[in-house]
Nucleic acid binder design. Structure first.
Lengths: 337, 337
DNA sequence: GGTCGGCAAGACAGCGCTGTCAATTGCTCT
DNA sequence: AGAGCAATTGACAGCGCTGTCTTGCCGACC
């Protein structure tokens, strides 16, 4: 209860508080023997420096902000997990904030926020990472940020991303490998860069395999269950059906699955299905969904590490690319199998 | 950039910094005219007090901790949303921490955490809210907490909860109202208090309606998709089937749905199905799941409000009960309809 | 042997705010 | 009009730590 302060440690170790401070902050000019003595005292007293005092006196706050404005619980949750784990390792703390505002209101809120609590850096998740006014506000306050999967102004800040294009390419190859030649694709919102990348990956893979991409086989969805449902009705409600459908995200894939069930189209017997994201829903349906797992948590982890200055290789390129994973479950199988 | 301090405001308003402080903290003994002048200066300069300095000098830190150790993204996400909204309204900030530890390690981590950043209160979500060692550690540090849906030691702290028993009762009544008399129930883990409450509510409703609760109609699940699947196979794989199944949570209900699909049992034509939680998955299947919506976000909001001292009625009982909602979707319908 | 250079460690002054206590003001009451 | 009292306001000392500057010390070098 009676909080231990740096003075207690200094007294115990027989040094000045400044020396304790130096040890704690890994500053140079401390003899190894002295350092050991201090560390022993710290351990003995179980001392933890007070974050508020540090923030007030010094230039660091040991706080990392995580800003989001994304209704997807699964995504946010993974991001948080990753960011938190990196913060913990670096002795930092995670402050989360939802920023539903846009435009001037956003700028204001961010300014207010940052003047109240100084942050050593913030992590921006989609779609915030592409909000120019936010980037401006952050830059104006001099707060560094790392963006996750940004799509514009890539030069403005370090960022972490996954190669949607290549992932979609490989998923398409997976379906082709199962014998599918007539594969339909349901794409996401037109203004969504990642959606476009996925579609490009799909089309490239088809071309590379010498397969045609029939226009009626590419449907425009909206990344929602319902839009997947609607596209599926168009794709499946005739005798001329594709043997496989690759949906641009899992929600839409689940919409396809619902329609297939209603029409008694067997998955994966008659129709193979693949999604993208490995959302929580992908495993609570039957058959479980073949999908692309994004390294979401890992991206956040890297982002946080970049901010806390404990990155594995700090001098890597500004854009850090992480690997996806093709998760093959029961919804895709050999054609006609 | 050149941060504005309380001195700037004081100078602008022509008062001492202490008076500004008083206004900001809503302390008494400030003449309305003075208060207005100060507030005008605050507005003009767009001043926000520095949280670190406040925390260091005063007894409050304006930080609320949200501790969790729950793999359910949907739940956490809602909790966070609710807690954040209440914090924002009260001028507080939300610090999230995952505490995977148990026993002594938990105690230690919490102590370390709290000695580094003082928190004005913490919100404990299930299952952490029932970890005695955590409650002890918090009490030892003198940090108040509010628990969400705790099941033990109800007197130890204020808490917020929902009446699982009554919710299950009403869902059962809903199914009965559709004409179902042979209803099966899939319960959750035996040591899970909420699961037991739900089961009790179901059984009570059956008794009150004069309907038998046949032992083979109550199956032991584990709150997972797979366990729902297994229970459903036992319940549905014979001619003597219930006309409705009420699963103790949505994941299990989805397992039931998967089996029904496989067996070509029409939902809701032949079998009505109800879940509990209104998890994200409940809406990305077809038919969409009839379920019980827990006021998760609202519970967190109330919890945070309790902590930040801005509760609607602070002197209400220690346990604040919030209302659930029966969400009727397509998976339940009139028997034989 | 004296002086310089550099490492190690300490003294000291705040960071921006709140708590305490003292000083001032503005009223009421007689 | 003056005393008496509460309502206002301000002066000042830290909260626990880090940044800057200073001091002490040892070996190297000429």
């Amino acid at each position: 209860m009676a909080a231990i302060t740096i003075d207690d440690v200094a007294a115990r170790a027989g040094v000045s508080i400044k020396t304790v401070s130096r040890v704690l902050n890994r500053e140079p000019h401390v003899r190894p023997a002295t350092r050991d003595r201090v560390l022993a005292a710290v351990d003995l007293l179980n001392y933890r420096p007070n974050a508020s005092a540090r923030a007030l006196a010094g230039s660091r706050s040991y706080l990392v902000g995580l800003f989001f404005d994304n209704p997807s619980p699964g995504y946010n949750s993974q991001i948080e997990q990753g960011a938190m784990s990196a913060c913990r390792d670096a002795g930092y703390f995670l402050l989360v904030e939802q920023l539903p505002e846009t435009g001037a209101a956003l700028r204001e809120r961010v300014a207010a926020l940052l003047s109240a609590v100084r942050m050593d850096g913030v992590i921006l998740t989609p779609p915030l990472c592409d909000r120019t006014e936010l980037l401006d506000a952050l830059a104006g306050e001099g707060v560094p940020c790392v963006r996750i999967a940004p799509t514009i102004d890539l030069g403005r800040s370090p960022f972490v991303y996954m190669d949607d294009r290549r992932a979609a390419y490989e998923m398409t190859v997976h379906l082709q490998g199962l014998g599918h030649r007539d594969i339909a694709f349901i794409t996401g919102p037109a203004d969504h860069r990642a959606a476009a990348n996925r579609r490009e990956g799909f089309e490239q893979a088809m071309r590379d395999a010498g397969l045609p991409v029939r226009p009626e086989r590419v449907r425009q969805g909206a990344f929602s269950f319902l839009s997947g449902w609607e596209c599926a009705e168009q794709l499946l409600d005739s005798a001329d059906r594709p043997t496989a459908i690759f949906a641009g995200n899992d929600d839409m894939a689940l919409g396809v699955m619902a329609v297939a069930n209603r029409l008694h189209i067997d998955i994966p017997g008659t129709l193979s299905l693949a999604g993208f994201d490995d959302s929580p829903g992908a495993q609570v349906v039957w058959p479980q969904l073949t999908t692309v797992r994004q390294p979401v948590a890992q991206m956040a982890q890297v982002a946080a590490a970049l901010l806390t200055g404990a990155p594995p290789d700090r001098d890597a390129a500004r854009g850090r690319q992480l690997d996806f994973e093709i998760v093959v479950r029961q919804s895709s199988a050999v054609r006609g199998g």
